[in-house]
């Protein structure tokens, strides 16, 4: 039985075995390689996507449990031929990106945060990122960039 999903606004059917991790379906079937397979154990957050609005580690999310779910990935944040989203643009403007592997997950964690809390504090942003490992940046600039989107004055 195929599983029916809405992926980035598009209805898709997946014929993969039900225990196939969502990350593999996104990457191997839909060629949405933004979500990264880094640890496969749900600790690093590089494969974070939104499942029905909530951040989920797609490496540990079996596709068989997702019938009818709405999946959003980093590829949805900006129009492919258009500008970066305000959050992405802030990351670029703050020169937050280094190797870049963690950003697809970090951006989705922050997207989920901003949908529930439009003006989070610095500590709330840091806590929201606790499940996303970044080995390059030391996090601060990512936090600054995120705050500049939701608290333009405070981040000056």
């Amino acid at each position: 039985m195929p599983v029916n999903l809405v992926v980035n606004g598009e209805e898709r059917a997946v014929a993969a075995p039900p225990l196939t991790p969502l990350a593999d379906v996104l990457r191997d079937t839909f060629f949405l390689t933004g979500a990264k397979h880094v640890c496969g154990e749900g600790f690093c957050g590089a494969c974070t996507v939104l499942v029905d609005g909530k951040p989920a580690v797609s490496c540990l999310t079996p596709v068989g449990l997702l019938e009818g779910s709405e999946i959003r990935t980093v590829e949805l944040l900006a129009d492919p031929s258009g500008d970066l989203s305000p959050l992405q643009a802030a990351m670029e403007r703050h020169d937050a990106v280094q190797c870049g592997m963690c950003f697809p997950g970090i951006l989705m964690s922050l997207t989920a945060l901003f949908e529930t809390d439009a003006a989070p504090s610095r500590d709330t942003v840091r806590t929201a990122l606790a499940g996303n490992i970044c080995r390059c940046t030391g996090y601060e600039r990512i936090v600054e960039a995120a705050l500049s989107v939701c608290q333009p004055e405070a981040a000056q």
Binding site: T33, L77, D95, V97
Partner: peptide, 20 residues
């Protein structure tokens, strides 16, 4: 303090690393 040219694609999830 110039921006980096690879940031846009890395932020869009479009950069294809070796694992991709």
């Amino acid at each position: 303090d110039l921006a980096r040219r690879d940031a846009g694609d890395k932020l869009r999830g479009r950069t294809r690393f070796t694992i991709d």
